[in-house]
Amino acid sequence: MSEWPLFEVFVRSKHGLNHKHVGSVHAADARMALENARDLYTRRNEGVSIWVVPSNNITASSPDEKEPLFDPSHDKVYRHASFYKLPDEVNQM
């Protein structure tokens, strides 16, 4: 089935939640990918909505870039509310 392109499948499990990646399917076209994803990933009420995306349309960060991409946010503690200590009287803020 490799002659059929690969699609990544994202399922929204409940209204109000994000679509989440669950796996992939092969299909001749997007319509069939949706049908295959429905049969494969939602046999037990796992979803209320499905996205399929051709796998080759996904651009992903590489593990080598992990440090330059994500390290800069490590030392910015002042971006978190817990950094700001307030007196007990107003600490509900």
């Binding site: 089935m1 002659e3 059929w4 001749a28 076209d29 069939m32």
Partner: peptide, 13 residues
């Protein structure tokens, strides 16, 4: 079946 599905997908495209 697989060939037909592929041909159909190409035609639609």
């Amino acid at each position: 079946v697989r060939q037909a599905a592929k041909a159909y997908a190409e035609k639609q495209q």
